[in-house]
Nucleic acid binder design. Structure first.
Lengths: 328, 328
DNA sequence: TTGTAGGCGTTATCAG
DNA sequence: CTGATAACGCCTACAA
């Protein structure tokens, strides 16, 4: 690999000059610049980013910490992050935290040692003191414990929309499969559900069961739930994966969706349209959230002003087959 | 951030000594070592990996190039790569090539400039001359054009298994939805299909239609296909996503799966069990493939002997609801 | 407009 | 066993 010195000597100038044309800063005579560029071409010179980083203390790398890229919510997010990062010449390091504090800490250490420029945190188990205060962070989908830049969507309001929608399509008894209570999103969605159903005469607390944002546990919970309350005819699941679990449970118990039970999820991951009974859901703009978070992070990194540090993105109701039925 | 020099002066030794205890090489007196360690603790010293990289020319970073992390096949793969990499102290940079030659080249350039230690290539549009010959590469799921280390699975044999399975469950006319012909995997699977059906009296070429490894196109192609040949009662799709497309098409045309049409896919991505009619498929050990590829890459990076440069992993038939029917 | 030289944080060679 | 010191490749005052 050719170095800046090779270029310099071929162009018969000093390394400083080469550096200047490289970074387009400082004055440099047109013809010498031409020479330098020619030399760079001849040698197929590419600056060594490691060396640049050492001296500039910038790496043009971002860390993206997700619980598990295998969870269908995160690929879309990762894609957005990667797309935006790429546009601005940044590169993304992917980290799966498995929601484990130790793994997260380990990654944060590594990222810090690698002098990563910034971090997008879409993991829930975050403990702030892990972070060296120096490194810019944007968090996704979590409460604003600190005053870190945050991107979320309208979780509570979305839940209200989902639950109301079930009422509108004629549901008489609506259950909720709640996500892990440690997460802000699950809490908010639960509150939104409550807000709508609490005043209903039929409401009772055991219409809420706990899931873990994944399919299996929701499937089982839903089965029990439906055995307990055979008259449930609507389910609002805290996310799409749990909705899919509910869907499978309903089907396994011989209930038809949406005729016997209407089901709605939350997130609008791609999976919702891949399954046969397409899933109604509250659409979060997942890609936009990732993209926005990345743009915010880049601004922070480049010390540009960050007008708003908290963004709550709009959600929309997407009705599909799983709640498509005549109002009764 | 404390530097090695800070540690050295606090411990009243030279940087060389600190470096020695850091890398456990060279002799160093026990008590001075203790001092040094104490100093490191006090300052919470962490070596700057950038500087290490500059001097060692190793970055402990791997590049993973996939077409699109949003495609459900790749998160599992990425997860495997990341897991193994992490065990060995490596970090993974994620790149989405979109199967575009330019994007791929751009990434390769960037990765090279970042002095990445090695690359796992799970993208199809690869042109070898892009690569600086120096940087270790392992390819996944593609033919061994070169003599690069390769990990694939038994594509042809899997296709034979899938097609035979359809025959066994009583299918009388079996179609194939083929993946993009530029890809080796699609070709091989097509050949496997042919191998089984060619001798059948009912076989004709237009039982094969082209998909692009994604849902939508397959859905449309399947609809046309079924209108053309209403007596098709078995479909072997070149991958699971296309099988899902076929499933939806069948359902939209009022055919029951598996009663009217049995459908089998290929890959065994997680999606296969998320849908209501769980999908029979030929299971590739996706995680293992990623893990193996990563281990091979790491060996190559560390100049350890790589006994076998070509690995063809075993596939297995997984029968689920979509082909579960009494033999007729 | 250009060049010299010191620094970024580590590693590694070579004397002591 | 330990300490100077020259790399690694690039950037940037400061001089010229």
């Amino acid at each position: 690999m050719a170095t800046i010195r090779d270029v310099a000597s071929l162009a018969k100038v000093s390394v400083a000059t080469v550096s200047r044309v490289l970074n387009k800063n400082g004055y440099v005579n047109e013809t010498t610049e031409a020479n330098v560029r020619k030399a760079m071409q001849q040698l197929n010179y590419k600056p060594n980013t490691i060396a640049q980083s050492l001296s500039s203390r910038k790496t043009k790398m971002l860390g993206l910490i997700v619980p598990d890229i295998t969870n269908p919510f995160f690929p879309e997010l990762a894609r957005a992050v990667e797309d935006v990062a790429q546009i601005y010449g940044y590169t993304v390091i992917l980290c799966n935290s498995d929601e484990k504090v130790e793994k997260e800490r380990e990654y944060l250490d590594v990222l810090e040692q690698k002098y990563i420029d910034g971090i997008i945190l879409a993991s829930h188990t975050f403990e702030y003191h892990h972070l060296s205060e120096k490194i810019p962070v944007v968090v996704l989908d979590r409460s604003i414990d600190d005053n870190m830049p945050t991107v979320v969507s309208q979780n509570r309001q979305g839940a209200v929309m989902a639950t109301s929608h079930l009422l509108e399509v004629g549901c008489k008894k609506i259950a909720h499969i709640r996500g892990p209570q440690e997460t802000m999103t699950a809490q908010e969605r639960y509150k939104g559900y409550l807000q709508v159903v609490q005043k209903q005469t039929w409401f009772q607390n055991d219409l809420v069961v706990d899931g873990d944002f994944e399919i299996t546990k929701s499937l089982e919970a839903t089965k029990e739930l439906l055995q307990q309350h055979p008259d449930i005819d609507g389910i609002f699941a805290g996310n799409d994966l749990m909705a899919v679990g509910a869907l499978k449970a309903a089907r396994q118990l011989g209930r038809k969706v949406p005729e016997d039970i209407a089901i709605i999820g939350f997130d609008n991951i791609l999976l919702t349209t891949m399954i046969e009974t397409e899933l109604s859901t509250i659409a979060q703009p997942i890609y936009d959230m990732g993209a926005l978070a990345t743009r915010m992070l880049l601004k922070k990194i480049e010390n540009k002003p960050l007008p708003d540090t908290y963004h709550e993105l709009e959600v929309t109701l997407v009705q599909r087959a799983s709640t498509q039925r005549a109002k009764s």
